[in-house]
Computed example of a mutant assay.
Amino acid sequence: MNQQYQPKHADIVFNRIGYGAMQLAGPHVWGPPKDRAAALAVLREAVERGVNHIDTSDFYGPHVTNQIIREALHPYRDDLTIVTKIGYRRGDDQSWLPAASAQELRAAVHDNLRNLGLEVLDVVNYRAPGAAAPDGQPLAEPLSVLLRMKKEGLIRHIGLSNVTAEQVKEAQQLTDIVCVQNQYNLAHRGDDALIDTLAAQGIAYVPFFPLGGFSPLQSEALTRTAAALGATTIQVALAWLLQRAPNILVIPGTSSLAHLRENLAAGALQLDPATIAALNAI
């Protein structure tokens, strides 16, 4: 299994197991973590063990995860890529609110720069509206704002999050896209065709919620498979994603060193064709 991937339109070589920073904030991705020292330790060990891709956003916390990333890792290693997302904000009641006006997008980029301690953001994903699923709204207006900031030297590369295949096509008429971040896992495979299209185009696909939305029967089937392999369910789910397509990058998140080590070990788990067929039937 190839453990690295370089998108066609970027000079970035990603190790395919990255780290998602959402869980570094407090409960419901709000406020500080219960154990800040543990959060710092997880980030530092992740990078020491070869993670060179951290997924974050300044609306996690808000601001909290980026500030922890900066405290743990700044000055950053040359090969570390921090991918952030904009397009939402947090309400005072902890709600998630679309924030896609030109002013809001520009403020979000500057919040990320300030809290991460950066002068330019490697990759900014525009997180399109839609709660349960992408709502398919046109992307021209928000992407035009990101393109202006790219010309200003604040953003190097642009990605998309929570989008349909049609929105990806629309975006590609405006700019090169280096990655797409959507919900996808064994139980939710609506993006199968999109993943294959992106692979052919040299665009990274970054699934979130690798165990999200499983029914009890689906979870039971995954648990049986994991037990037979002497692995955890998350390890099997991550290994399946890594073997699904070469352009898939996984970003499991955790605030636990033990879970971090388990997640990284998924890269060494090879699933045979019979196991993959059984998992595909979930």
Rank of each mutant, 00 (worst) to 15 (best):
V83D: 00
E220L: 04
D55A: 09
P75L: 08
Q183W: 04
T81D: 02
V42D: 11
R89A: 13
P32D: 14
G136D: 01
L121E: 13
A237S: 15
V120R: 15
I282R: 06
A41M: 03
E45T: 08
Q218E: 15
P134W: 11
W240Y: 15
P207L: 11
A165P: 03
H53P: 00
H9V: 04
P246E: 14
I276F: 06
E152P: 01
V180G: 10
L116G: 06
R189Y: 08
N2S: 12
T225C: 15
R261M: 10
Y126I: 02
A187T: 13
Q23W: 05
N280M: 05
D135M: 09
P33L: 07
G153A: 10
N52C: 03
A237G: 11
P7A: 09
A265C: 07
A226R: 01
V168E: 02
V83C: 14
L271A: 11
Y126S: 06
Q3N: 12
G267C: 06
I203W: 05
G202Q: 04
A39H: 01
L241V: 03
E141K: 13
R90L: 03
P33S: 04
Q270E: 08
N185D: 07
N2C: 01
V250N: 00
F208R: 04
P75T: 07
V206T: 15
G213T: 02
A171I: 06
L186N: 07
V145M: 03
H188V: 13
V64Q: 12
D135R: 12
A102V: 01
D79M: 05
N280R: 14
E220A: 13
H188L: 14
D58R: 10
P252M: 06
A277Q: 13
T232M: 00
A237M: 07
P7N: 09
W240C: 08
L186V: 14
S144C: 04
V120S: 09
Q181G: 07
V168F: 13
T81M: 05
Q167D: 01
Q23K: 08
A165F: 02
